[in-house]
């Protein structure tokens, strides 16, 4: 029955699933649901971008303290989240030579390469005199940091829903709504089940 909907019935769309993993909304686009795909992409990447805008790149961190647990949710955004984390780990962090730990810098620290690793060193006097604060990014603190990490993790969970919709392009709710809104008839076995559950003898 043509319901006027762009929902597809039945089966697993593996190509769309793989594309949805690569980029939020891409799965819908390759399966011909361009409008839905673009809006899904705007939703997921907008939420992820909002998190980065509010909390900075520090909001995505797979290796630091409790932030790694947030990253489990953020990772569901896909390669974008892993890319941001890679940039964070490799371009904004350095080793603290006193503890041997990889960490975010503090104000008035310079990120320098000692031949083997990037390390944090005290900012040279001439750069301090020039008014510089150092090479460290400003990390998010308190509620803002929590909101930023939450935004990125919510984006991941939202993308999981979108991925499943791309991989399994049928929805019980959607089909049921289409039938009722279009005045169409439900499948006989479906009517039978409803009648059985509600005690409707005519339906049986």
């Amino acid at each position: 029955m043509n319901t006027g909907s762009d929902r597809h019935d039945g089966g697993v769309n593996a190509v769309a699933g793989i594309c949805a993993v690569l980029l939020p909304g891409l799965g819908h686009m390759v399966s011909g649901r361009m409008h839905r795909g673009i809006l899904a992409m705007v939703g997921v990447l907008g939420l992820f971008g909002l998190g980065l805008l509010v909390g900075g790149i520090d909001a995505v961190d797979s290796k630091s303290g409790t932030d790694r647990f947030w990253f489990m949710g953020q990772a569901m955004v896909g390669p974008v989240a892993f890319g941001v984390d890679y940039v964070h780990q490799n371009h904004f962090k350095a080793y603290d030579m006193s503890t041997g730990q990889l960490r975010t810098g503090n104000p008035f620290e310079a990120r320098v390469h000692n031949g083997a690793h990037w390390i944090w060193e005290a900012l040279p006097a001439d750069r301090i005199e020039a008014g510089e604060l150092g090479d460290a990014n400003v990390p998010g603190l308190g509620r803002l940091n929590e909101i930023a990490m939450l935004c990125c993790a919510l984006a991941g969970m939202l993308n999981l829903i979108i991925f499943l919709d791309a991989l399994l392009p049928t929805g019980y709710g959607g089909r049921r709504e289409e039938h009722w809104s279009q005045g169409g008839k439900l499948p006989a076995n479906f009517v039978h089940t409803i009648a059985k559950n509600t005690g409707d003898k005519e339906g049986l």
Partner: peptide, 28 residues
């Protein structure tokens, strides 16, 4: 890259957050 300094207005961030969730969720 850097965190914003909007500590006094943190509660307003729920508006864009909910908007983007709605845009993505309702799309599917």
């Amino acid at each position: 890259v850097d965190a914003m300094s909007i500590h006094a207005q943190w509660y307003l961030l729920i508006v864009p957050m909910v908007f983007f969730v709605a845009v993505g969720y309702k799309a599917v």
